[in-house]
Amino acid sequence: MADDTKSGGSEKKHIGADLVIPAVALIFALYYFSTILDSPWTAQVSAFFIGAVLITLIAVFVISGLLSVRRGEADLGLQRLTEPLSFMPTRAALFALTLSFIFFVEWGGFTITTFVFVGAAMLLLSRGRNWKFILALSAVLAIGGYFLFVYAFEVRFPKGPFELLMAQVL
């Protein structure tokens, strides 16, 4: 994993993105504590110990980060999370497609949803090139996946039109 905190040729480190994980961890730890305040000691002991260490680590990290901002060595830019910027729209679209895949698989069933998702995602990443190959590949993967997961391994996926039809045919 590359750990180059400088980017864009600027001299300053962009440490804003580095604070995302600690922020999420801190919020989660505080939320966790709120759920165990009235609990028996068995529920609390590990969490308070681990949470305390986590919060201390975060505090040291944030303070040292803020000090470097104060010294003018760093800023709170979020660039590291988004760079290279040109990929962000593609990545956001891929995320939306993945979310839709999970959402629609309940109605569409495994095969059709996988076909649509894999096809759309590949077209997105190839920027529309090789569309015939991609459609054929998506069909092969979806049907292959159907036979492997639904038919052979009997995965209890929600059944869609394709699975219901195949159940009648096979």
């Binding site: 994980i21 999420v24 961890a25 989660f28 730890a29 939320y31 966790y32 759920t35 165990i36 609990s39 028996p40 068995t42 529920a43 590990s46 969490a47 681990i50 949470g51 260490v53 986590l54 680590l57």
Partner: peptide, 21 residues
């Protein structure tokens, strides 16, 4: 430690008190 904290989600093994769920 963030991972360890996530790992603590769920009922405790003694009194089954739900935590962080």
């Amino acid at each position: 430690f963030f991972g360890l904290m996530i790992g603590l989600i769920g009922a405790d093994v003694v009194y089954a008190t739900p935590r962080g769920t």
